[in-house]
Design a protein around this nucleic acid. Structure first.
Lengths: 189, 189
DNA sequence: CTGAAACGTTGACAAAAGTCAAGAGTGGGG
DNA sequence: CCCCACTCTTGACTTTTGTCAACGTTTCAG
């Protein structure tokens, strides 16, 4: 699975092979079973993950037990509680594999070391940060304004993968609507 | 107004006075009238602003003309379309002064120069990025799950300034509810 | 100061979405 | 490969929120 990560990095930064090997060896491969948690709310996130296979749900849980998904991270994407990871603050979110998954994990300490040793690593971090931020801003702008129907339409246009690959229950938790409403909306499209 | 920015920077980075002067001189002071736009959707954001006084509304506009506010940036905070600013992409958002305001503007070219010349500048940028990201994540997690009443309660707890300082219409556009609903909710609290 | 334009409040009604329940369908762990 | 737990769908009903309208209040630009 390290090849997925290697390809990702090769495509993005200039490098020499020694450095690339160094970077790759800082990552640990980890299999995650369906339903298994990678991070619990309240925990301080110590790892940055590259999802090599599968899908990780990022969600919050209310007192009533309702779960709301902020994001689904598929293969070839990064996953971490960025703010908590950088500032050693407890996470408010949970990470859970919703498919059998494989992640490449780098510990915070190694991550810091890499940032100092490999300048391009810093660049990648900033790219991830900027990209994640842009995605989240987009999500706020879209969803505060739209009703249930338009949210589904938006998802069909911008994230069809979420609709086709995940259960209605999960999709509904991403859209902030009930599964029943989602079911009815899909029926009349 | 440059003193506001100077205090902000002094409080955050180690420096020598020559560097600080260099940094400050890269900024241009600009008065913004109430209602005046600092950025139009579709435009590429060329500046990073430090709001020294007043309040800038960050919002999107739907085809129907409905405006939804993603953020209100008060004095002592940074304002830019981060993704578009960094990647020279058109903005989807508008920036508008909702109070008579004063901003300190730094052009993208100067910004890049400062990042190279003053290492701490890079740190500040990353801080802003991480902070903005965290805020936006918080907003998504909160609002997708909550109904109108709980959104208002959340705002009272976390952003009372928005409630007390801005008009009901603006607050409603931030909460994603109608002004009438907000008015009714406030009446029975 | 002042008046026009925007804003806030309230009521009546309509539309959207949630809740609860029950039965059919499905998928993945053993 | 099969069965059980979970999910999906549909219906009936309730609750929440939006919309439209009317009118009083505020605000700020000239």
């Amino acid at each position: 699975m390290v090849d997925t990560l290697e390809a990702y990095i090769r495509a993005r930064i200039s490098h020499n092979d020694t450095q690339l090997t160094d970077v790759l060896s800082a990552f640990v491969t980890r299999k995650v079973r369906r339903g298994e948690m990678l991070l619990q709310a309240g925990e301080v996130c110590q790892h940055c993950y590259f999802v090599a296979k599968g899908c990780i749900q990022v969600f919050v849980s209310t007192d009533g037990g309702t779960e709301t998904s902020r994001d689904f991270v598929f293969e070839n994407n990064w996953l971490t509680d960025i703010y908590g990871f950088a500032n050693q603050q407890p996470s408010q979110e949970f990470f859970r594999a919703v498919e059998p998954s494989v992640v490449m994990a780098i510990h915070r300490d190694q991550f810091g070391r890499m940032q100092q040793q490999v300048p391009q690593f810093e660049q990648i971090y900033r790219q991830i940060l900027e990209q994640s931020y842009a995605t989240t801003v987009y999500r706020v702008n879209t969803f505060i304004a739209l009703d249930a129907l338009d949210r589904v339409r938006w998802l069909m246009q911008h994230q069809p993968r979420i609709l086709s690959r995940l259960s209605n229950k999960l999709v509904a938790s991403y859209l902030g609507i009930s599964p029943e409403t989602l079911s009815r909306i899909k029926a009349r499209l």
